[in-house]
Amino acid sequence: MNAEHRPRTAIDHLFFWFMFANGGVITALLMPVHVLVQGILGPLGVVPVVDQHYDTYANVIGNPLVKLYLLVLIGFAFFHFAHRLRYLLADFGVPAAKSLPAQVIFYGGAVVVILVTIWILLTTIPISFG
């Protein structure tokens, strides 16, 4: 810390943390029920679940609110994951995880997942209010 050094709020980190925190809340509130219902109860046939049949699933996925919901869930979640995994790597003793290239790779990865999500949501089952 020299005399010339002028401290400045790190806006980039602020943004990453904001996305991470929101992603954390969203995944905390929403993930377990998806995994439980779609990953366990549905496949085991304990309860009927929309994704067990093409018709019901397509019907739900066509709803624009569902598309928006999925985009929010996946979008924030992947910023959360990118952030945690980057810090996890640093905790494992890889200081490079704190570098700018690592930031580009991890958060860029999250952005790629978001773009892919948008593409899938737009190209899978046209929007309908039926």
Binding site: T27, M31, H34, V35, Q38, G39, G42, P43, D51, Q52, H53, Y54, D55, Y57, A58, I61, L70, L73, I74, A77, F78, H80, F81, R84, L85, L88, V113, V116, T117, I120, L121, T123, T124, I125
Partner: peptide
Amino acid sequence: TALPMALWLIWLLYEISGLRSGAHGYTPPR
């Protein structure tokens, strides 16, 4: 926890994209 959750969501996306191949191409997760 971020890693397994990420993998699961990627699977979810994959399933959704499976809907694009129509009723015949879609395999429900079982």
